[in-house]
Design a protein around this nucleic acid. Structure first.
Length: 481
DNA sequence: GCCATCGGCGCG
DNA sequence: AAAGCGCGCCGATGGC
């Protein structure tokens, strides 16, 4: 660890103390729910496995492996599928085995494999989360560890159990795990997170005028859509959709359609590009998403067919050694990428190059919060670490101050966890409004006085569970100040 | 029985 | 030219 300023040292010092208090506070756990759900899930897995074992493919599996057949072995599954059944291997691992991750198996579109993946999802939920949480519970409370000194990027990590990767993206898995995390009597769970913090943080370094425009313009149209929305704009470009297709919502179904398309633009193009990925990976992910997420135009036309109308007929080879061909999605995304860096975010692009060049000259680089990175880093690491660390340090500073003020005002509310850009607290019901206002004051106003390089209008979002409720039930709430 | 490694997957 | 970053935890595997 190399904090090179007094402020940086203090952040680390106070952060350790604050997080140790968070650990001591702990999270209330519904132990009965866990025991019940583990039993149910174990039974369900066993049931599904019995069913799966009647499939022809498993019978072949059994014939080949005999006594050693293990339905939990992906290596065996890969052998059966790709060496014995003649399916085409999607990719190889570093050590030359067939890839058998969800992405590779989804492409095969085989019922046996689909059921296998569904069982794997439940097994993961059961072993890592339901049982993993239960074994760490002490007197009805969980005390996850938060580390500040382990992580390359000067972020934090969490273990025993890891509080920072509790399922939320898959609704079925979230529904299984999150009800176990409950509030104290007369309390409610409140999670407050910075919106798009890493995008803001990157902008504090590169100050790209096009990006700043996106970040400053918070105006909305009559449908509540932000007038300027980078992710939606890029989704439009990637799928070659006209403006109207993503700018108003006819009904709930249409709103979901727009949300899905925007999600793809954000997580399969914009973020991967920011983190140093490139068009081949983006094109592949986006192309697969059209199928798995069943993306359509407003009139219900599949995006595949829509693209054909625009002269894009197939994904393309996606071979890094070969130039993409005309009429392929790969070629199109290559153009979008080129436009993204060389016409749209030119200042950002320039910053990336200069930043890396300077590191190569000096052998080190500093982040905005006063930490020095020394060592042998790859280009993407040099560009990403200062952003990742600084964003987290904003959250850490807020957490330290929040805890200090909660104590000063003799409030009963307790901070119980932290997830990189969010703070989770168990808030006494009579303090809810106070708590939300306090967070707004600290996380938006006070922090700007502490660090003058915060030059964009950062914002926060609050999610609140009912009094006596659980972590699955959190819902977005407006913050008044 | 212990330990390290790998592939996989959960989160930001 | 190179081609996402950071974590922790699980089961399978294989060496000792």
């Amino acid at each position: 660890m190399q904090p090179i300023t007094n402020k940086a040292y203090k952040l680390l010092h106070n952060g350790c103390i604050a997080l140790s208090q968070v650990e001591a506070n702990g999270i209330r756990i519904d132990v009965d729910y866990l025991n019940r759900t583990i039993a149910e899930t174990t039974a369900k897995v066993k049931n599904l496995l019995d069913k799966l074992k009647t499939d022809k493919i498993y019978k072949m599996w059994k014939k080949i492996y005999g006594q050693d057949a293990n339905i939990g072995s992906r290596e065996q599954l890969g052998n059966i599928l790709f060496n014995h059944m003649g399916y085409e291997s999607v990719a190889l691992t570093d050590t030359g085995r067939h890839k058998t991750d969800k992405n590779a198996l989804d492409i095969l579109d085989v019922p046996f494999v689909r059921n296998f993946l569904e069982i794997e999802r439940l097994k993961k939920a059961n072993s890592t989360y339901l049982k993993g949480v239960l074994k760490e519970v002490v007197d009805g409370y969980l005390h996850p560890v938060f580390n500040l000194h382990l992580v390359q990027t000067f972020r934090s990590s969490s273990d025993s159990p890891n509080f920072q990767n509790i399922p939320i993206r898959n609704p079925d898995t979230a529904k299984l795990i999150r009800p176990a995390f409950i509030s104290r009597d007369n309390h409610q769970l409140v999670e407050i997170d910075y919106s798009g913090l890493e995008v803001h943080t990157a902008a504090w370094y590169h100050k790209d005028p096009v990006m700043l425009k996106y970040l400053f313009n918070k105006k909305e149209d009559e449908y509540g859509n932000p007038l300027k929305d980078m992710h939606r704009d890029m989704a439009r470009q990637c799928f070659m959709l006209p403006r109207e297709e993503l700018y108003w919502k006819e009904d709930k179904k249409d709103a979901k359609r727009i949300k899905d398309i925007r999600y793809c633009g954000k997580n399969m193009f914009v973020f991967p590009e920011f983190y140093g990925d490139y068009y081949i990976d983006c094109a592949t992910a986006l192309w697969n998403a059209i199928g798995t997420m069943k993306l359509t135009t407003r009139n219900g036309v599949s995006i595949y067919d829509h693209l054909v109308g625009k002269g894009v007929f197939k994904l393309g080879l996606c071979n890094p050694d070969k130039k993409p061909c005309k009429g392929t999605f790969e070629k199109h995304i290559q153009n979008v990428e080129d436009n993204f860096w060389n016409n749209r975010f030119t200042a950002y692009n320039r910053w990336r190059k200069n930043w890396y060049y300077q590191y190569k000259e000096r052998g080190w680089f500093d982040n905005l919060t006063g930490f020095r990175f020394r060592g042998d880093f790859k280009r993407n690491e040099v560009v990403n670490y200062p952003v990742q660390s600084c964003a987290f340090h904003c959250l850490l500073w807020s957490l330290i101050r929040l805890q200090k003020l909660l104590k000063k005002y003799n409030m009963k509310s307790l901070i119980i966890g932290q997830i990189h850009d969010s703070i989770v607290a168990d808030v006494y019901k009579k303090e809810l409004q106070n708590y939300l206002e306090l967070c707004h004051q600290i996380m938006i106003d006070d922090i700007k006085k502490h660090w003058k390089w915060i030059i964009t209008p950062i914002s926060i979002e609050a999610e609140v569970s009912p009094v006596g409720g659980d972590w699955l039930q959190k819902e977005k709430t407006a913050i008044h100040n």
